[in-house]
Amino acid sequence: MQLRDKVALITGAGSGLGLATASAFAREGARVVINDLHEAAAREAARGLGDAHAALGGDVSKESDVAAMVEAAVARFGRIDILVNNAGVADSFVPTVEQPLSHWQRLIDVHLTGTYLVSKTVAPLMMRQGGGAILNLNSIAGVLGLPVRTAYSAAKAGIGMLTRVLGCEWGPHGIRVNAVAPGYILTPLTEGLIAAGRIDPTRIRRRTPMGLLGAPEDIAEAMVFLASDRARFITGVTLPVDGGYCAFGAPSDAFAIDDLDPRTAA
Rank of each mutant, 00 (worst) to 15 (best):
D253K: 13
Y245K: 00
I199S: 01
R43W: 06
D51R: 14
A40G: 11
G211E: 01
G211H: 01
S15D: 12
P124I: 03
L144A: 08
P201K: 00
A195K: 08
Y245V: 01
L212G: 00
A26M: 04
F93T: 00
V110S: 00
S102P: 02
V32T: 09
V84L: 11
I234F: 10
I159V: 15
S139Q: 05
A195I: 09
L117P: 04
V84W: 01
S61E: 05
V180S: 04
M126R: 08
N178D: 11
A215D: 10
A73D: 05
I159W: 11
G29E: 08
R31Q: 12
T113P: 02
R149K: 11
A42P: 12
V60D: 04
E217F: 13
V74N: 06
A181H: 03
E39H: 12
C246Y: 02
Q99N: 03
A24Y: 05
G14P: 14
R263Q: 04
N138D: 09
G12W: 07
F77A: 07
T96E: 06
D81R: 02
T113H: 12
G130K: 11
W170M: 05
A247W: 13
G211T: 03
Q99Y: 00
G183Y: 03
A42S: 10
I34G: 10
V33I: 15
G249V: 13
P240Y: 04
F225M: 06
E28Q: 15
V148P: 01
C168M: 14
I234Y: 09
E63R: 13
L260F: 04
A181R: 07
T121R: 15
R207L: 09
V148A: 00
R43P: 00
Q2N: 12
R4W: 00
M126S: 11
M69F: 09
A123N: 05
H38F: 12
L19E: 10
V143K: 11
A196Y: 07
A265N: 06
R27Q: 15
F93I: 02
P182G: 04
I10G: 05
G249E: 05
A68W: 12
H103W: 05
L83P: 09
E98Q: 13
V7C: 05
V122A: 09
R164F: 00
V32Q: 06
A87V: 12
T163F: 07
P209W: 07
M127G: 09
P240H: 03
Y184E: 04
P216Y: 13
P201I: 07
L189N: 00
Y245A: 01
M127P: 01
D218R: 07
G16D: 15
M126C: 12
F225Q: 03
G88C: 10
G183D: 01
L125Q: 12
G244A: 08
A141H: 15
P182A: 07
R205V: 01
